[in-house]
Structure formats: structure tokens, C-alpha cells
Write a protein that binds this DNA or RNA. Structure first.
Lengths: 343, 343
DNA sequence: ACGTCGTATGGCATCGATAACATACGGCAG
DNA sequence: CTGCCGTATGTTATCGATGCCATACGACGT
């Protein structure tokens, strides 16, 4: 052995050989103890554990990954984690992974296109992610993406189903249906809609659900307005809607835009819910506390994140996927931003 | 060489030797090309790159980490990333790290105590994090934590300064001062305070700042109420405050609690801002769009996250820390929840 | 008494990349 | 013409852990 190790670190943290030497066993036995393999006597097991304790030894993840081919890491591709839904999902994924003793590496994309997603996926694959959770609202399917998801077990959350991946999502048409039917049931003649951006599946699905309900009921479908999820865009939409006295019910694709809308209506002297009923989506934490308290559709983000982790875990362990029959239902929460249409 | 590699994978992804063989050079040359080392002729460089392209080769991170001792990974310990502040910080860190071509592994803790933080830190260290960003509002100092931060470059965000780590934070006393002085300047006789939990530094600092301003002005310090950051706790506090007619100005330690408070006041028939002025902290996205639009103290979370990354990066590269003279200032944003005290 | 089996343990090659060292070559100063 | 130096490239040991195989030992059935 030369004086200086090739990577030039002078004093290195204890390695398995150190533990083995102190415990008077082979590295192989140390390895077995640490991974709870059978065929180790209690005596040696104890000596190894003592040595580990004494040296403050912790296993080198890189070496383990290289040798075993397993990284105990899952990758998460996401977008807009600073939004309520994004943050909730991300955070529940991390907690669930943590419980399974897996680490999470994130790859955030800032633009919603195939190239961005691809580069994120490639990065995660290179890092050796054993599984990937794809939590982007991508609509397009892409062959190159599917190639990667064929190699590494993938679950998509809320994105369009990649053919080769398991897909978990709240049914966004159902979300729209709940909202729209709630408004119709209050006697409104039709329901207006402030949609999210067209490249988000969720947005498109909500729009479709909204349109379906109206069409099925034989009602006219009012022109749709597009927002960008930001409250400001809801506000702008509201400025425009406030002038039209025939607007009495609006389904807004997100709570944040909904509050923007309500503010605009308020400023124009149209009261919510007396003059206009508003339903949002997400049930953000402030929904119940702003005025008026917002009627909205809650989505089980945390459950979705947990389910995503459970699903990929089951695939890694070659167990049956516990989420196969899982149905995550959106839920209408009626508060004070909706009311029966005035005569 | 045996037929089956020891880790039992049948067809492995291309390794550097494969690239070397195809390009007709040694692995060393491949390595040099990939890391832009000098002393490689253009001819070979091209052949290597071609081979890389042809094989779809990507370097094995685990092997690289093991061999070089560098993981290009930074760890982030955080709490409550589903809150606005947490999500913003986390997300800005990831973006900044990404630009430096570093990956981020997160370690979320669910309880705010030294043991939780320690185990998170240990996990990150074991994963080989080259640097750690400690974004928890821990108050206590702890020797075991400092031991780790001595080994791996650490920046704390918004936590109490660990002696061995660089600390970045918005001055929370200043936050409180801005809020309290704003309210006093509107003619209020004193300012009430809904604080955050006592184990959060930020909360304690805000309380201290609030108390200082009142004391310096020779005013009586009203009893303080503790919340838990959740809007509901602001609401509960509001139920209690609403009965006291001498309450005309409240500084709330977070926007979410502030909206809870406002709702409670509203329900009790006390108007904001006519009867009671309210200032929050954070400037959440909805602050400007709920009614009344909330006067609040904005904090530059994104800037803080970027600065944290810049700081640890500079230490890894042994450059001068660009954030040494960085001052991140909170900013008062006056909206409609505060008004001059009525005569 | 002896082969067999299950338990317990160690030796060695290996994963994929990098650092350190060795080597080969061409140009240029003396 | 020789020796030295900078460029260009290959060889080998190494990082730290694991898989596979060999081996050793005691118990047990025959």
C-alpha cells in the first residue's frame, strides 16, 4: 500500500476493513452483520456492532451502490414545487420514501416540454435511481421517454399515462364534474370556466369535464378563459367577467386563480356568492380562512405521493402493487363562495 | 472473467471500457475527454465522443463518486416544505444547485428536535453530500451537530447559527420591527402579537423584535398569543382577541395565521382595517388577492436559497464566498389590512 | 465410523471510474 | 548530436463494498 491513497485524502473515514480489523473478523462478516444476513453467530455479531459503534463507522453509499448495483434512491421529476399541489406531493413522496429507507433526488424542470423532461430523466437515471416518479403534467407521449421508463420502474402522477408506466392520478374530469354539477344544482343557468394552461393535462381534463357536464345537460357552453395558475391571471379574467351580468357561476381551475377572480369581482361591485358563485380546485390551506371561504374541490395529494412510492417500491421488491385498485377521489367541499341563484 | 458478473445483471449498460474499446483508446483517455482535461488530441477526442454518442454511454455516478471521492451532491435538511416559505426555499435551492450541475438530496424532518436533525445530517453525510444546507429553525446548539458541520461545509438558513457553519438569514427582529413600527406609525396605542411556536427561532426573534419596539417606545406590552403557523390557530387567537375592544393593531407572525385572525375578527363583527389593523409575515401568493389584501413583510426566500448554494459552492471550490457581504432585507408591503387608527 | 447436510466464515474477483506513475514522441537549446 | 522538456497516452493500483465460491466444523442418520 502506498503512502497516499490515489484520491489524495489524507485521513479517510473508517471503512469496512477497519471495522473488520477491530472486530477480528473478515469484511465479509461485517457486511453480513450490517445487512442482517443469517449465519452469523451472536458473538461475532456483537463484536462487529461494537466495532462499528466504536469507530463511528457508516457504510459508504457510493461503494455499496457500485458493488451491489442498488442505490436505494428514487428520483422525482417535478415542476412548480412551489405551488401548493406540487409542494404537498413532493413532501409526501419524501416522507414515504424515507420510511422505506430510500433517498429522494429531485429534478425540477422549469419549462414544460419533452426535452426538459428528458434531460431530467437522464440525470436521474445516471444517478442510478432505482425508480422514478414523474410528477409533471406532460400531455405529449414520447418514444424517448418511454425508453427510459422501460428501463427504470416509473410511476406518473397527474401526467398523461406514459404507456410503459403505471399512472396514478385524480380523475380531473371528475373534479370538474363535481364543481360544475354543484353549481348547476344551485340553479345557475350555466357555468363559466377559467382554465389553466393548455399544456397541462390537468387543465385540459378539467376543461373537458366541465364542457361535458354542460353539454350533457343541454346547456350552452360559454367561452372559456385561460389563466396561468397565478392569482393575477384569475384577477385579469375577473376584470373581464365582471362586466357580463349573465355570469353567475364560475368554475375556476385552481384556488389561487379563484381568489384572484373573487377580488376582481369584488372590486367591480359584484358580490360573491350573492351575485356570482365561485368554485376552485385544490383546497389550499387558506381556502377556508379567506373571505368568502372558498367552495372548492379537494385532492388527496399526500395520499397520491404515498401511493406513488408504494407502487414503485412494490415493483422493486417484485411484490404485487398495493395501489392497483386504489381509487383516489376528489371531494367537493362546500363553503361560502357558492349560493343558490337569486331569482 | 466469469460468465456472469458478480452483481448478477445480465446485460449491463455500457461502461467506460466499452467506450474505450470502440474508440480504440484507453479508458484513461476517455476519462480525460469526458472531463475536459488537456493533453488529448482533437482526433482522439472526436473518436471518443463519437463512441459515447454511438453507445449512449453515460458515466456511472456511483463509480465516479467512489473513485474520485466527490459526489456532486448537496444535502438539504428541511422542515415543513409544504409551507410557503419552505417550498420556496427548497425550490430555489434545487434550481441553483442544478445550475452548478449538482444534485440535491433532501432530508425532511417532522419533529423539531436535535435527534431528528442529527439523523437527517447523518443520512446526508453517509450519502456523501459534499455540502449541507441546514434549513431548519432549530434554536439549540449541539456539539454533535457541530461535529458534522465541521466535516462537511454547511450553511444554515434561518436557523440559529451553528458556530462552525456559515449562517444566512433574514433578520427576523427587523421583520418584527418593520411590522410593529408600521402599525405604531398609524397611530395605534400598542400592538398585539400572535407568535409562532417557541421552538422556532424565527418565531422567537419576531417576538423579541416586537417587544423591543414597544418597550423602546415606552408602551405597554400586551399579552402574547401563541399559534402553530396554521391558519386555524390564528383563527382561535382571533376569537379571543375579538372580545377585547382595546385591540386595534395586531402583528401576526405569519400570513396564514393572519388570515385566520381576520376571519375570526370578521365573524365577530370587527372590521379589518377599520377597527383592527393586521400585519402578517411572508407575503404568500394569495396575500394580495384575499380580502382585505394583506399588509405583510416579504422575505426574499428565493434569494436566500440561491445564496446558500452559492456559499457552499464557493467553499467547495475554495473561492471567496460571494455571499459574505450579502444582506437580505425583509420588506414591508402595505396593502389594505392596515389603516390609521380611528379617533 | 463415515458420508451428508446445515451453519458459519473467509478469500478473491469484481463493480466502473480515477490518481499516480510510466512511457513514448517530437521539438528545441546547447 | 545529445539531453531535456512538454505533450500525449497507456498501465496499474485503488476507492469500499458485495457476490460467488471454497472451506471448516459440528450434528445426525445409517
Amino acid at each position: 500500500m502506498s503512502e497516499v491513497p490515489h484520491n489524495n485524502r489524507v485521513s479517510r473515514p473508517p471503512a469496512m476493513t477497519d471495522v473488520a480489523r477491530v472486530a477480528g473478523v473478515s469484511t465479509q462478516t461485517v457486511s453480513r452483520v450490517l445487512r442482517n444476513h443469517p449465519y452469523v453467530t451472536d458473538d461475532k455479531r456483537r463484536r462487529v456492532l461494537d466495532a462499528v459503534e466504536q469507530l463511528g463507522y457508516r457504510m459508504n453509499t457510493a461503494a455499496q451502490a457500485l458493488s451491489s448495483g442498488r442505490t436505494r434512491t428514487i428520483g422525482v421529476v417535478s415542476m412548480a414545487t412551489e405551488s401548493y399541489a406540487g409542494a404537498m406531493t413532493q413532501s409526501s413522496i419524501e416522507r414515504a420514501a424515507d420510511e422505506a429507507d430510500y433517498s429522494v433526488v429531485g429534478a425540477q424542470i422549469s419549462t414544460l416540454d419533452v426535452d426538459a423532461i428528458l434531460s431530467a430523466l437522464r440525470r436521474l437515471e445516471k444517478l442510478g435511481s432505482e425508480a422514478i416518479i414523474l410528477a409533471v403534467p406532460l400531455r405529449a407521449q414520447d418514444r424517448r421517454i418511454e425508453e427510459i421508463t422501460k428501463r427504470v420502474p416509473t410511476v406518473t402522477i397527474g401526467g398523461s399515462p406514459v404507456r410503459t408506466a403505471r399512472s396514478l392520478a385524480v380523475d380531473q374530469r371528475e373534479v370538474a364534474r363535481l364543481a360544475t354539477e354543484h353549481l348547476l344544482s344551485l340553479g345557475h343557468c350555466t357555468v363559466w370556466h377559467i382554465a389553466g394552461p393548455n399544456d397541462w393535462v390537468d387543465a385540459v381534463e378539467r376543461t373537458a369535464g366541465w364542457r361535458d357536464v354542460l353539454t350533457d345537460a343541454g346547456l350552452t357552453v360559454p367561452p372559456m378563459i385561460h389563466g396561468d395558475w397565478d392569482p393575477e391571471s384569475g384577477y385579469q379574467a375577473g376584470r373581464w367577467l365582471a362586466d357580463r351580468s349573465d355570469v353567475t357561476a364560475v368554475f375556476v381551475a385552481s384556488d389561487e386563480m379563484a381568489f384572484g377572480l373573487i377580488r376582481a369581482l369584488h372590486e367591480s361591485g359584484r358580490r360573491v356568492p350573492e351575485d356570482v358563485s365561485v368554485v376552485g380546485v385544490d383546497d389550499v390551506r387558506l381556502a377556508a380562512y379567506c373571505t368568502p371561504a372558498l367552495t372548492t374541490i379537494a385532492q388527496p395529494f399526500a395520499e397520491l405521493g404515498r401511493a406513488a412510492v408504494a407502487s414503485v417500491m412494490s415493483r422493486l421488491d417484485e411484490r404485487e402493487d398495493p395501489t392497483l385498485n386504489l381509487v383516489v377521489r376528489p371531494k367537493l367541499i362546500v363553503r361560502s363562495s357558492t349560493a343558490r341563484k337569486r331569482a
